[in-house]
């Protein structure tokens, strides 16, 4: 087995160990069997799945965005895809629509927002060729959606504002056992779809014109990449709130460690390390709980932001 294979195997083992460590936190000391059952199935298990799926899914969507835009600074958060999902969710939550009460209302609106934002950024990427320009548009878009959310908050009731604020902080504890199959289904569809695209993704590394000459249906692949990203970012944002930096940092780290453009290896790395990263952040937040509470978004930003700054400095 070569070095890359060993690294991925090691990652898989560490992830498995982390899962066991995460499960150990279940407090069953003073509970009945029935209550221990509730603790595990309704609290621990959905939290574990949230961490694994959100970490893996956001990393995968970041990898796809970086390939599509041929830009290592691309990611669902930086390009405003999370912001699109956040905006439509804000419209639903702060607008007080009864649809909000339904599980599908939240997921549907989040998916729609993510898809529209991804389509918008894709359109912009055709017009704006420069990386800096594209990132600026992404930041402006995020700022614009943030302003609309602020306007909506000034109209909404304090209760609605509180609900939206909490959702916006990001959380791995909001998913219920009943929602786990939905999140897993959406994730599995997105994952299988991206595995079908591996050859095209590898060809895209050479540039879309080259990929076209190699027989790749570039238009269809571009649409697929956007759809997968919207599916992942939208569903994860709906259930866990917007989570920053995972989608941006993990694929870059994968390229640095594996030194490859083979998207089969990169996808596996993103799935394993993305899941491990978010699980690690959650384990850390559990350890810190007796002292202070840190929303998951704060932890990911605390670790992710310096890494991105390092990447930018290294490139310049």
């Amino acid at each position: 087995m070569n070095r890359k294979g060993l690294l991925l195997l090691l990652l898989a083992l560490v992830l498995l160990l982390s899962c066991f460590l995460h499960i150990q936190f279940t407090e069953v000391s003073s509970t009945s069997a029935a209550q221990a059952n509730v603790l595990w199935w309704e609290f621990r298990f959905p939290r574990l799945i949230s961490a694994l799926v959100a970490g893996a899914g956001l990393s995968l969507s970041g990898l796809l965005m970086q390939n599509l835009f041929r830009n290592p600074m691309a990611g669902p958060y930086v390009l405003g895809i999370n912001s699109g999902a956040s905006l439509t969710t804000a419209l639903l939550m702060l607008g007080g629509f009864p649809l909000m009460l339904h599980n599908f209302g939240l997921v549907g609106s989040s998916l729609l927002g993510a898809f529209l934002a991804a389509a918008f950024m894709f359109f912009v990427s055709w017009r704006v060729q420069q990386t800096t320009g594209l990132l600026l548009v992404g930041l402006m878009f995020a700022s614009f959606t943030g302003s609309i959310e602020s306007v909506l908050q000034s109209w909404a009731s304090p209760e609605q504002v509180k609900q939206f604020f909490l959702w916006n902080m990001g959380s791995l504890q909001q998913l219920s056992a009943a929602q786990v199959p939905w999140l897993l289904t959406l994730f599995t569809v997105a994952l299988l779809w991206s595995l079908l695209l591996i050859r095209s993704l590898n060809a895209f590394v050479l540039g879309q014109d080259q990929a076209f000459q190699l027989g790749v249906r570039t238009q269809r692949v571009r649409f697929s990449m956007l759809a997968i990203t919207a599916l992942l970012a939208g569903s994860i944002t709906a259930y866990c709130g917007p989570i920053a930096f995972v989608g941006l940092a993990i694929p870059n780290l994968g390229r640095q460690l594996l030194r490859t453009q083979d998207h089969f290896l990169l996808i596996i790395f993103c799935l394993l390390f993305g899941a491990l990263f978010l699980l690690g952040c959650d384990i850390l937040s559990v350890y810190l709980e007796p002292y202070f509470s840190l929303p998951i978004n704060v932890l990911t930003s605390l670790i992710g932001a310096p890494y991105i700054a390092y990447l930018v400095l290294r490139r310049s």
Binding site: T26, E27, S29, T31, Q35, L39, F43, S293
Partner: peptide, 13 residues
């Protein structure tokens, strides 16, 4: 004061 949700659930019988 703050407490973990699971801790409250486990110790509030």
């Amino acid at each position: 004061c703050f407490s973990s949700i699971q801790s409250v659930l486990a110790k509030s019988t």
